Computed example of a mutant assay.
Amino acid sequence: MSNESSRSAPTEFPRESASFLLPGPVGDLEVACEPAETRAKSPPAGIAVICHPHPLHGGTMHNKVVTIIERSLRELGLDTVRFNFRGIGKSGGTFDEGEGESDDLASVVRWARTVRPEAPLWLAGFSFGSYVALRNAKTLDADALITIAPPVGRWEFDAIDLPDCPWLVVQGEEDEVVDPQLVFDWVESLDVSPHLVRMPETSHFFHRRLMDLRGAVKNAMRAYLPKANDPA
Rank of each mutant, 00 (worst) to 15 (best):
E34Y: 10
P180C: 08
H62Q: 13
A142C: 05
N84W: 04
N3Q: 10
S2K: 04
E75T: 06
V177A: 15
E201G: 02
C165M: 11
S127G: 04
H54D: 08
C51A: 12
I160N: 04
E99S: 11
S8E: 15
R39P: 00
L76A: 09
R113F: 03
V108E: 05
V109L: 03
G87Y: 13
R208V: 03
A106K: 14
R116E: 09
D141N: 12
D103I: 00
C51V: 09
V49M: 04
G58R: 05
D161H: 00
R15E: 14
E156F: 12
I146Y: 02
A232V: 05
L76Y: 09
D212M: 06
P35D: 14
P55R: 07
F205E: 04
D191K: 10
P23N: 11
R214Q: 11
G27M: 12
P10H: 10
S193G: 01
T202G: 05
E118P: 00
H195C: 08
A36S: 15
D191R: 02
E75R: 14
F205L: 10
R198E: 13
G87L: 11
G172T: 11
G59P: 05
E188K: 15
E101C: 07
S189V: 00
G59H: 08
C33H: 05
P150G: 07
K90N: 13
G153K: 10
A40H: 11
T114M: 14
D103V: 00
G125I: 07
V170P: 05
L134V: 10
M61R: 12
R74M: 11
K138S: 12
S91N: 01
H52A: 08
F126Y: 14
A32I: 12
G153P: 10
G98L: 04
I160D: 12
L145S: 07
G100F: 03
E176W: 00
E12G: 00
L213D: 04
P10N: 13
G24N: 11
I146G: 06
M61E: 01
L105Q: 09
K138I: 02
G87S: 09
A133T: 14
